[in-house]
């Protein structure tokens, strides 16, 4: 650990999983869309909600779906004092296993009650449906104490639901390693900091926690130059989501003078067709007032105009 501790930054990871449904779950989701819950008939004749795709005892496919009520009895429950993002309610609630009338195996879902004192095993609850249903388990917003409101009337048969979209959003506090933190702090001062392996004496930029050849901590700090040689490169011609640089452009491995491991950066200031192995390049830094603890302080690399490096001088670094 460094005296300053490691650098941290928030990291959001998001992806919408698009999932196709087999015949069993398609039947279940199609039912939910019209506010009708279906259970699957298991090999022993019992009814499970949601229907499993296969029987866990006989491994037979579950093919028979039967309608069940959207009211039922709480079999077990847990209080959720501090809901996390994405859960059905954003204030304290209960998760419960609910045996719906007509079913034998419980459905896991939320129950909206004000406090843990307002819920108990054996209590009857009813589904609260979303105003707009799409064919998803979240079409049931949550369950609430049954009360005496009228029963839900399922809608007419509609189109078969064949897929669901499951958005996943995760939030992290992302830390750089102590070595990476030194590297980024160096960049904030316009320096490129590497570390030398005490065994093989190779200089790694950026520094790593361990020499991947020897498996020992890379302890000796060294500053390397902001210019070097292109060892290998590729020309990016394919557009992709989030692309910030107009194509075609060149991504290259740059072996900085004094380093033994090349690192990846952008090459500009030269026609992509003229970029070649052995080309000498130098860092083009952004204006100093735009610097932070980031590799983006270097806008890109461009040719120095020096003669190309001899292949023999960098061939072991490919």
């Amino acid at each position: 650990m460094t005296e300053l501790g490691t650098l941290h930054a928030p990291l959001q990871v998001e992806f919408d999983y698009t999932r196709s449904l087999g015949p069993t779950l398609s039947g279940f989701m199609t039912g939910l869309k019209r506010r009708q819950i279906f259970g699957g008939v298991l090999s022993d004749g019992s009814v499970a909600v949601p229907p499993p795709e296969y029987d866990s005892k006989t491994y037979d496919a579950i093919t028979e779906l039967v309608p069940v009520a959207d009211v039922g009895v709480i079999q077990s429950w847990a209080w959720v004092p501090e809901p996390v993002p994405g859960q059905p309610l954003d204030k304290p609630f209960a998760f419960a296993q609910i045996v719906l009338d007509g079913a034998d195996k419980p459905l896991l879902h939320a129950v909206a009650v004000a406090t843990a004192a307002d819920i108990q095993t054996g209590m009857r609850v009813r589904a609260v449906w979303a105003d707009e249903t799409v064919g998803s388990i979240t079409d049931i917003r949550w369950f609430e104490p049954e009360g005496d409101s009228p029963a839900t009337t399922p809608g007419p048969e509609g189109e078969t639901v064949e897929g669901i979209v499951s958005p996943v959003k995760l939030s992290y506090d992302y830390a750089a390693s102590p070595e990476e933190s030194k590297f980024f702090r160096g960049l904030a001062e316009g320096k490129l900091i590497g570390q030398r392996c005490p065994v093989c004496e190779k200089v790694y930029v950026p520094p790593r926690g361990a020499c991947p050849v020897d498996g020992v901590p890379t302890t000796d700090e060294v500053e390397v130059a902001d210019h070097g040689v292109i060892t290998t490169f590729c020309i990016v011609n394919v557009p992709f989501a989030g692309q910030q640089i107009p194509i075609p452009y060149v991504s290259a491995y740059v072996l900085l003078d004094g380093a033994d491991i090349a690192f990846l950066h952008l090459i500009l200031g030269i026609d992509a067709a003229d970029v070649r192995m052995g080309l000498r390049v130098k860092a083009v830094w952004k204006p100093r007032d735009e610097w932070g603890t980031t590799i983006a302080n270097i806008s890109h690399f461009e040719p120095t105009g020096e003669p190309d490096a001899d292949y023999e001088t960098y061939k072991v670094h490919l």
């Binding site: 999983y17 999932r19 449904l21 779950l25 279940f28 989701m29 949601p50 079999q75 077990s76 429950w77 847990a78 209080w79 959720v80 996390v84 993002p85 994405g86 859960q87 059905p88 998760f95 419960a96 296993q97 896991l108 879902h109 939320a110 095993t121 998803s136 388990i137 979240t138 669901i164 499951s166 996943v168």
Partner: peptide, 26 residues
């Protein structure tokens, strides 16, 4: 958890364990 019928509810690990505990207790 099951990605079709449970994960969309974000049924967290503590809640699932608490439901199990209550099953045993009651």
């Amino acid at each position: 958890m099951d990605p079709y019928t449970v994960t969309p509810l974000w049924a967290d690990a503590v809640s699932v364990a608490a439901i199990q505990a209550r099953s045993g207790l009651e």
